[in-house]
Design a protein around this nucleic acid. Structure first.
Lengths: 184, 184
DNA sequence: ACCTGAACACCGTTCAAGT
DNA sequence: ACCTGAACACCGTTCAAGT
């Protein structure tokens, strides 16, 4: 039975989870799948596009709180993305690349943009607010992963993440929801 | 005359400016300096710490608007960092690594934190607001650089940056300055 | 003190040739 | 259609030995 595209991506995600980006090499991936390195290029254009598919796969299981009010939905999604990316070494770098090159390829970010759109007045505001939240999530996860990889202290990172999320949400939270914003 | 640490860093910045991270290799750097690759390890521990020094050097000339009111000072610094990093391919990735591993090693970020501190009430708020602004700057520059490298459209990136900066500043701008916040 | 020479264990990508 | 074998042009890092 021949190798499939999905098996290649799954194995790549596994390698990233287990060892980080430095060990996610085309040669190592080929060894894992018991084929020659060149065989991968039948299923994948090159390493860059492989990484974009890996980013999609990493966030494929992030859920949306159905029927939720937008602010709570945004918080839920932001936390879901953080929790999906945090345990994968260098996951934030891979997802950030995917977000930059093709923001619409990752459903979780598409849903985030849609929710933000319900709180903003113009497309430009929607884009700016979505970007701010995405950069906060990916930036704080990146900081935490880089510090962890360097053996530095990461305690309190969760609280810092929540505070930053509050700040990023503040300008788009409707006045009526200002009081009970935290903790939902 | 023997090679100095500073010459190594300068050459590394030059290589990054000219060709990006993929071409900033220890071997290429050695060739540029007309020494053998091993010689670099007398002046630098390894490639990671070299990159942190490169990040410092990249932002060394970002100025602070002296005697300015905090909000205007923060805008000035954020724009200065963006303008210093944007023309250097993959500069945002290098600076983000430096910010994560040693936020105090880059004076521009130390000054940013100090200015933010004048608008926030607790150390936790200062840290969260500084991180949010830093992640916005580095995240939006990273998006723009990644898109440019992939040959995608980047027009309007400057306006998106300014809108995001407004949003990131909104929750810490004093009520007295709310009206005339934009454009200073 | 500072560097060379040479090695070690790797990379991503291409492509003729095989099945 | 899918993969092998082999090559090409590279990597980061170490370290004895030289000056």
């Amino acid at each position: 039975m021949p190798l499939t595209h999905d098996e290649v991506i799954d194995a790549a995600v596994g390698l990233l989870r287990a060892h980080g980006l430095a060990d996610l090499t085309m040669r190592r991936l080929a060894r894992e799948l018991q084929v020659q390195p060149g065989a991968l290029y039948w299923h994948v254009d090159n390493k860059q596009t492989l990484l974009i598919r890996v980013a999609e796969r990493m966030l494929a299981d992030v859920t949306t709180a159905t029927g939720a009010e937008p602010v709570a939905g945004i918080r839920h999604l932001a936390r879901g993305i953080r929790e999906a990316v945090l345990p994968v070494p260098d996951g934030s770098a891979v997802v950030a690349l995917g977000y930059a090159l093709d923001p619409d390829s990752v459903p979780a970010f598409v849903r985030l943009r849609r929710l933000v759109g319900r709180l903003t007045d113009t497309p430009a505001d929607t884009a700016a607010a979505t970007d701010l939240i995405a950069h906060h999530v990916l930036g704080s996860v990146s900081d935490e992963q880089d510090r962890r990889a360097a053996g530095l202290d990461v305690h309190g990172a969760g609280a810092v993440f929540e505070r930053g999320l509050d700040l990023a949400l503040a300008p788009i939270i409707p006045a009526t929801a200002r009081r009970s914003a935290h903790g939902n």
